[in-house]
């Protein structure tokens, strides 16, 4: 691997940003020294509560806002260098488009802004419409499309330049369950193609399924960078088991103290507080010839994790 390819596709070092308050009376610090690295082919989740500084960070990456201090390098170049943006695709949060255009026209405009040769542009537009399932609405004005369709158009225009780095701000927003699954599959396929992805989201399950690691930003600072499981989110707060063929007396092994046991529609529903308790309950049920209908680990909520990070709780060092 050459030295150039070892260079991270995205580097933020001690990035700071503040905005002037109304009437210029003071300044609000939005970013307080953000450090973030996205390697080649890596999918990184950028998580944080509302107002943590996620969108400001993404705007700085895309050259839409300027940092007060620190270093930003996108594909080895500063974000103000438009050549850097040749290799980047961006989906803004709740993407806004010209509502008088159609999906095809939006993609044609995006292709023209990348200065793609005509034949390549035509193919990319057709592929983008196909990939995001937009062929059916290709000539429908955007004002007539639902939020879910607009999100797909946003994703299609972000990918039109065949980017090395894709920056997605809340890509699942406004999508129905089928759409969410399709977008998850799309992001997974980008990863398989070696495209780097920075995925800003507040939905933990998306990050869990897609990301190699996550960076958690709280109060304008990265409080944690690493695998999501190590952040505490991998731990189940409690586990729900549904068992058929056993009553509440027979389902629970002696010595185990479940959080709750109740019969619902002839099924025994048991809640235990750890994965190890769930394992022993499962073994017991099988011995008793019971049938396990479902096992659902319930994870710590992201809000709770953010609250812990705010207090300097489970969050590790950046």
């Amino acid at each position: 691997m050459s030295a150039a390819s070892e260079e991270p596709v995205l580097l933020l070092d001690d990035v700071r940003k503040s905005y002037r308050t109304p009437f210029g009376l003071g300044r609000i610090e939005v970013l307080r020294g953000v450090n973030l690295v996205v390697g080649r082919g890596e999918t990184v989740g950028f998580l944080g509560p509302n107002g943590a500084g996620k969108t400001t960070t993404l705007k700085i990456i895309m050259g839409l806002a300027r940092p007060d201090g620190g270093t930003v390098r996108v594909l080895g170049r500063p974000p103000s260098d438009r050549n850097a943006r040749h290799g980047v695709g961006f989906l803004p949060e709740q993407p806004y488009f010209y509502d008088y255009l159609t999906p095809r026209e939006i993609l044609e405009l995006a292709a023209a802004l990348f200065a793609l040769p005509s034949a390549v542009a035509r193919k990319r537009v057709a592929d983008g419409l196909e990939l995001l399932g937009l062929s059916r609405v290709r000539d429908t004005p955007l004002r007539k499309l639902s939020k879910g369709w607009l999100q797909r158009v946003g994703l299609a225009q972000a990918l039109i330049g065949a980017p090395e780095l894709v920056v997605l701000d809340e890509p699942m927003s406004g999508l129905d369950p089928v759409g969410r699954r399709e977008v998850r599959e799309l992001i997974a396929s980008l990863k398989n193609q070696g495209t780097s992805v920075l995925l800003s989201s507040h939905i933990l399950s998306d990050a869990e399924l897609l990301c190699d690691r996550v960076a958690v930003v709280v109060g304008g600072q990265i409080r944690y960078q690493g695998p999501l499981a190590r952040f505490g989110a991998g731990e189940a707060a409690f586990v729900d088991l549904v068992i058929d063929g056993l009553d509440s007396q027979r389902a629970v092994p002696p010595g185990l103290e479940p959080l709750s046991v109740e019969m619902r529609a002839g099924l025994c529903c048991v809640r235990v507080k750890s994965q190890s308790e769930a394992d022993s309950l499962l073994r017991h049920c099988l011995e008793q010839a019971g049938r396990v209908v479902s096992v659902t680990p319930n994870r710590v909520g992201l809000e709770e994790i953010f609250a812990q990070a705010l207090q300097g709780g489970s969050a590790g060092a950046p």
Binding site: G63, L64, R82, R85, F90, P92, F97, A110, F114, G161
Partner: peptide
């Protein structure tokens, strides 16, 4: 105001 500028200026456009 409509934020369409985000989509345009995030492309390689000066």
């Amino acid at each position: 105001a409509k934020r369409t500028i985000f989509t345009l200026l995030s492309k390689p456009v000066a």
